[in-house]
Amino acid sequence: MIPFSILDLSPIAEGSDVSTSLRNTLDLAQHGERWGYRRYWLAEHHGMPGIASAATSVVIAHVAGGTSTIRVGAGGIMLPNHSPLVIAEQFGTLEALFPGRIDLGLGRAPGSDQTTARALRRNLGSDADEFPQDVAELQDYMSDQPRQRVMAVPGQGAKVPLWILGSSLFGAQLAAHMGLPFAFASHFAPQMMMQAVALYRDNFRPSAQLEKPYVMLGYNVFAADSDEEAQLRATSMQQAFVNLRTGRPSRLPPPVANFRQQLGPAENAMLDSVLSCSAIGSPETVKSQLKAFIASTKPDELMITSQIHEHAARLRSYEILADIHKQL
């Protein structure tokens, strides 16, 4: 069976705070390690009231320090926000602290709005367009014999696997060209998934890091002991997504019964589209939906996210999924 991994946005739930969110993140990682998940990734977002992982490398250190075997990494670092040298130093440090356990996924989007991006002190003129050059520069800093005069210390010679993240054909093309593993954000932007995966696999060039293409797909799971409970739990993420898309980003709301029935046709159509790569239900329902998704997409790995308001219910969702993985 293909590996399952965890993508955590360190959600800040309504009625909670950042400290609790980060404690919950470590607790989920420790449970995920025991349950057999392969890796635990955190994402860089800025200016988002419901996400606590903005200082992504710091949170990675928090999680890696409290676990022992699970791989920990970024899914991802938004490279246009940063100097490649700084990222080489940060992840070189993480690799020195936790050898053989650190991943570095790289994204092209700023992970924020334009005003927040300006506050990050980066030139907004062409940074996204320079993403391939930034990836190559970062790769060189972390090589055994960099060509650049400036040295990344820590960083030089760090054996940190790089991944390209994407939600479009651009990331697929770049990952194929550079011979890097590709993670597609199908958990919130599934529209070009099949086309991007085919493009990546068809055009992949082997590299020193990777001999053959490797595809990870994002997937939402809301598992509970009954279909009804799972549908209720999923409404927290649905509310948060509607709030975000309508310009009202929020903390992760508590679940609301019959939430979808309260929405208009346009909002329901948006949720149907963006959350089409999701399994919601009891163990048997989730198992059936997962099997169908894996059969149709044939990924090498799934990266599972589960935005559930109550921490105990989120743990239960990942526990159910771990049991399903063993059955599959």
Rank of each mutant, 00 (worst) to 15 (best):
residue 100 G to R: 03
residue 27 D to V: 01
residue 64 A to D: 00
residue 263 L to D: 15
residue 183 A to Y: 03
residue 265 P to D: 15
residue 47 G to W: 03
residue 29 A to K: 00
residue 258 N to T: 05
residue 278 S to M: 06
residue 173 Q to F: 14
residue 317 S to I: 01
residue 118 R to G: 13
residue 2 I to E: 12
residue 162 L to P: 03
residue 284 E to M: 12
residue 255 P to C: 07
residue 92 G to I: 01
residue 328 L to N: 14
residue 273 S to Q: 15
residue 123 N to C: 07
residue 289 Q to L: 13
residue 268 N to V: 09
residue 105 G to V: 00
residue 218 G to K: 02
residue 37 Y to P: 03
residue 186 S to L: 02
residue 54 A to M: 11
residue 204 F to V: 01
residue 300 D to Q: 06
residue 121 R to S: 09
residue 221 V to T: 10
residue 113 D to M: 06
residue 130 E to P: 12
residue 164 I to P: 06
residue 238 Q to D: 14
residue 265 P to F: 15
residue 47 G to D: 11
residue 151 M to A: 15
residue 55 A to F: 15
residue 169 L to V: 11
residue 146 P to D: 14
residue 220 N to C: 07
residue 82 H to C: 01
residue 258 N to Y: 09
residue 305 T to F: 12
residue 19 S to K: 14
residue 125 G to C: 04
residue 35 W to K: 00
residue 157 G to M: 04
residue 18 V to K: 05
residue 292 A to Q: 09
residue 250 S to C: 10
residue 237 M to I: 04
residue 39 R to I: 01
residue 185 A to Y: 13
residue 271 L to P: 04
residue 194 M to E: 15
residue 145 Q to D: 08
residue 38 R to W: 03
residue 315 L to G: 14
residue 30 Q to I: 04
residue 87 I to K: 02
residue 106 L to R: 03
residue 317 S to C: 14
residue 192 M to Y: 11
residue 32 G to F: 03
residue 184 F to C: 06
residue 193 M to L: 12
residue 220 N to M: 08
residue 42 L to S: 05
residue 58 V to A: 11
residue 288 S to Q: 12
residue 26 L to E: 01
residue 33 E to A: 01
residue 221 V to F: 01
residue 297 T to R: 08
residue 285 T to F: 05
residue 183 A to Q: 00
residue 318 Y to G: 09
